[in-house]
């Protein structure tokens, strides 16, 4: 599979997250969940942490299967 996710790649992934973060309350409302501002902040912080953890986990796994070059993300 593909190699590690570089810092440039992480930057792009986080950029893609911004629309979701900004409209997270709208998104939740679509599923009938109404969030207070506090809940919203907790939720999006959690979201970002989850993505960071996922990327780290991915890189650890990719690191064990050698080939961590690729000019890719």
């Amino acid at each position: 599979m593909s190699g590690r996710i570089s810092r440039a790649g992480l930057l792009v992934i986080l950029a893609f997250l911004v629309p979701v973060i900004v409209e997270f309350r709208t998104l939740a409302a679509l599923f009938g969940v109404s969030l207070s501002v506090g809940q919203y902040l907790v939720a999006v912080t959690g979201l970002v942490m989850a993505v960071l953890l996922a990327v780290t986990a991915w890189n650890l796994r990719a690191g064990t299967t050698a080939d961590d070059h690729t000019g890719g993300a």
Partner: peptide, 17 residues
């Protein structure tokens, strides 16, 4: 061409840098 594979993981092989 750059070695990307899979249904979506080829996205990772693009030159994001």
């Amino acid at each position: 061409q750059r070695g990307g594979e899979g249904y979506l993981s080829w996205l990772g092989a693009l030159p994001w840098r």
